[in-house]
Amino acid sequence: MLDIAVGSYGEVPEHPVHRSMAPRGADVAPDTVDMGYILNAKTDVWSDNVVELYEEAVARQWSATRDIPWGELQELPDDVEHAMCQLCTVLTEVEMIAADLPAKWMWRMSHDFIEAKMFLCMQIMDEARHAEVFRKRALSNGGGLLISRTAPTDVEKRILRMCMQDEARHVAYGTMHLRYAIEKDPDVAEEIHEALDHGESVLIDFGSAPDISSALAMLLPGGADDIEKKGFPLAQKLSKKQLTSYLARCERAGISRPERTTIPLDLLGIDPESIRPAGVAT
């Protein structure tokens, strides 16, 4: 895609002049049907790394059947298997949501932003594969789906590592899209802040729900015996790392959250200064 983004074919318009299904760069007849797209500004969808990320996504596709050594899956103690199945249940849920959301926007986006649409297609495929792999894991070892970073064996480790590669790519697009949008129109920052206010509230509720937090605390030390002494402290350490990382990415995107967030930074031991890396333009 990078190689063919030449001349007028490679020029992504800020505001496409038509809303047809014609591919960017083609001649468009005057009576071409209007598709009614509502995302017709480049700032709505673009990020400067989206073409590179699309290529990366294509190159790094994997199979939830072929690339996971299912034959090496070991029988686990009941408590650990139960916790793993709970974690897989939750992950299956959220992966399908993560597929639904980009799908909801894709058909509303101008075809002139084809690279961004193609990237979202890959994201949807990635999320479908994640839902598949977690569902398979939940059902493959005597457990099952339960009430709707941690891994007991190398099979689960490989599953999570492969998924992490995909998710990091999605985050890279999201971060740079927000940055692009804010650079072009600083007024959207407040809208994004409001969405994050809501999202963080959901994140805190989700992360502290007993089904997922207990499953993680069980898996981290490898069973129920050390859940109080090691499991919950390790789970809190992971939360701190996760939220610090999230806030640092917000900074990178140009959305500074420490003064606004309701995440209990003090309680989690997060120093706001530690998430403001040098050289970040805000």
């Binding site: 590592r161 492969m162 990091a168 890279a172 971060t175």
Partner: peptide, 12 residues
């Protein structure tokens, strides 16, 4: 963070 993401993106 974009650099750190590469550790995850290319982890395998």
């Amino acid at each position: 963070p974009m650099g750190l993401d590469k550790f995850s993106r290319f982890n395998q």
